[in-house]
Structure formats: structure tokens, C-alpha cells
């Protein structure tokens, strides 16, 4: 029974949401596709009355650009490194947390703490920890060099200090810092989801394993992991989606330059590339890059789903 008064009311209640979504969500979807397929589309040229032909020149241009290739490479590398590391660590921590009673709540709270932080702010703390140069000689040309707490710790254990993020640092060192920070940032959400999954596994499976005298490692690989696989698939998929949109954690450590002093944009990501194009009103290329990003996320998600279908036990 659909009476017309309810119809009218429903659309009234939905109207604020619909209007805002039309302007800021639906139109952008259409317009982004449109701009991506208009050759050389540019916000400044459109003011000048320029007309554009339909084509794929934006995509060709973007794919050919070194800056985009660097961004794509960095993003992919960070994803491939951080998702497995953070998932594995989170799994170990969640299983460990699930197997203890005293201190469980306290440790759980500590592990969730990085989640409620500002990724720019804490990125600055990481930068301070890895930083080497305290003062590059301003007043009186004095150069004060501090090793930075991470290097102090490395030396404490007998290692050699490393130039992590300062001018002249290597790409590998930069990436290492980013991996450490991104994993640190990604752990809480994964632990939360995996621990929730573990706590909902029926105890009977473990009791049965105990009766059979199954060794711990076997219980882990044959009971825990399979029964946790939906949750694992979920954190891996969201991990990849988040990973391909990596941006602000790099700004947190390296600033808007997206790289150490002397090598700006060395660590740029796809999202960073899109944002860089905006103030130049290079909308066509930015849109093309955004669609490429969307396609990558879609493909990676679909591959994950396909793998899940074979491996996940619901």
C-alpha cells in the first residue's frame, strides 16, 4: 500500500541528502568520466572558450609521464610491502591477545591507540624520531647534528646510523620509514577486526582439537586461520584499497614536497599526483589518473574476491 502522502513525505525527507549527493557525488562521477575523455581538457582553457575532442589522449599522456609512473610505482610498492606485513603482525597480535586473560583489556586498548590519532601529527613525531639534522647552520653557521632517537637505538644495539629522511638519504631508507609508519598506523583496525573474528569462533572446535591432542601450530593453521578467513579477506581488501589511496601519511613525514630535501616528489603517490594537477586546473589528466586509480582498486578487489572464493570458508 503506497499512499501518495507518504510518497510526497519520503521525497521531502530525502531532499537535502539527494540535492547534496547530486551536486557533490553524482555530478562528479559523470563529469570526471567526461573530462577524462576530452583530449587535453583544462579548466583554464575552458574559460578561454576552447572546445575539446573526444578521445583517450589524457590517458596516453598520463601513462607516458614519468611523474605518474613514479607515483604508480611508489603506491604499488608501499601496498605490496605494507599489506602483508601489517596483516601478518595483526594476526599474530590478535591470536596472542585472544589466548590470554590478565591484561587483555589493557593491551587491547594500547593496540587500538594509534587508530585515534591524526596521521599528519603523528607522522611529524615519526619524522622527528628518524630525523638526523637538528640545525643546518643558520645563526653563526653552526651545524649541529643529532643522530635522532632511532639511530641512537640502532647504535645501542651495535648498528650503523642511517640517513633515513634527510637530504641525501636513499630511496630504500625513505621507503623503510614509510613502511614502518604505515604498518604502525594500519595495525589497530586490523587487530580490532581480527580479534572480533577470533572471539566469535565457536570454542567447540578448540575443545575437539584438545581432545585429539592436536599440536598448537596445527590448530592455528587448520582451525584458526580457516575460520578467520572471512575477516582476513576483509582486512586484506580494505588494506589494499586504503593502500592505493596512500597520501597523507607521506605528507606527515615528508611534508607537501613528498620527498626528502633535494629530491622532492620522489615518494609521490597516485593520489598525490591527482592533487598536484588540481591547482594547475589540469582536470583532464587528473580525471584520467583518478579513473586509472579506480580501475586498479576495482581489479585488485576483484582478484582478492576471486582468491577469497576459493580460500575463504564461510
Amino acid at each position: 500500500m503506497v499512499d501518495s502522502k507518504q510518497q510526497w513525505k519520503a521525497w521531502l525527507y530525502l531532499s537535502p541528502a539527494i540535492i547534496l549527493l547530486l551536486v557533490f557525488t553524482v555530478w562528479p562521477i559523470i563529469n570526471t568520466v567526461r573530462m577524462a575523455f576530452l583530449d587535453g581538457y583544462n579548466g583554464l582553457a575552458i574559460v578561454g572558450g576552447a572546445r575539446f575532442t573526444v578521445g583517450i589522449a589524457n590517458f596516453q599522456k598520463v601513462i607516458g609521464l614519468t611523474s605518474f609512473k613514479t607515483s604508480l610505482y611508489n603506491t604499488t610498492l608501499l601496498c605490496v610491502l605494507t599489506v602483508p606485513i601489517s596483516t601478518l603482525l595483526a594476526l599474530l597480535i590478535a591470536v596472542a591477545l585472544n589466548s590470554i586473560k590478565p591484561l587483555q583489556k589493557l593491551l587491547q586498548t594500547i593496540f587500538f591507540l594509534p587508530y585515534v590519532t591524526n596521521s599528519i601529527a603523528i607522522g611529524m613525531v615519526f619524522a622527528a624520531m628518524f630525523n638526523i639534522v637538528g640545525n643546518m647552520g643558520t645563526a653563526g653557521n653552526d651545524i649541529i647534528i643529532t643522530a635522532g632517537i632511532i639511530n641512537n637505538l640502532i647504535e645501542l644495539f651495535g648498528g650503523e646510523p642511517i640517513n633515513w629522511i634527510n637530504a641525501g638519504s636513499t630511496y630504500a631508507a625513505n621507503i623503510t620509514v614509510m613502511v614502518v609508519y604505515i604498518v604502525w598506523n594500519a595495525l589497530p583496525f586490523k587487530i580490532l577486526v581480527l580479534l572480533g573474528g577470533l572471539q566469535s569462533i565457536n570454542r567447540q572446535y578448540y575443545d575437539a582439537a584438545k581432545v585429539d591432542g592436536t599440536p598448537r601450530a596445527r590448530v592455528f593453521t587448520r582451525i584458526t586461520v580457516p575460520l578467520l578467513s572471512p575477516m582476513l579477506a576483509y582486512v586484506i581488501i580494505t588494506g589494499f584499497i586504503g593502500g592505493f589511496k596512500e597520501y597523507s601519511s607521506i605528507v606527515g613525514i615528508f611534508g607537501e614536497d613528498m620527498g626528502p630535501a633535494g629530491a622532492p616528489h620522489r615518494l609521490n603517490t597516485i593520489v598525490g599526483y591527482i592533487y598536484d594537477a588540481l591547482p594547475k586546473m589540469n582536470y583532464g589528466q587528473a580525471s584520467a589518473a583518478a579513473l586509472i586509480l579506480f580501475a586498479i582498486i576495482l581489479v585488485v578487489t576483484m582478484i582478492n574476491m576471486q582468491v577469497s572464493k576459493k580460500r575463504v570458508h564461510y
Binding site: 557533490f24 555530478w27 563529469n31 570526471t32 573530462m35 579548466g43 589511496k245 582536470y283 583518478a290 586509480l293
Partner: peptide, 14 residues
Amino acid sequence: MIPGELFTITNYAT
């Protein structure tokens, strides 16, 4: 499902 970055470009223009 659509990444927010896709909206940002047009929203910036809007």
C-alpha cells in the same frame, strides 16, 4: 565503492 579522490577533481572545479 568509488574512491573519494574521483569526486575531488570535479568538486574542486565546482
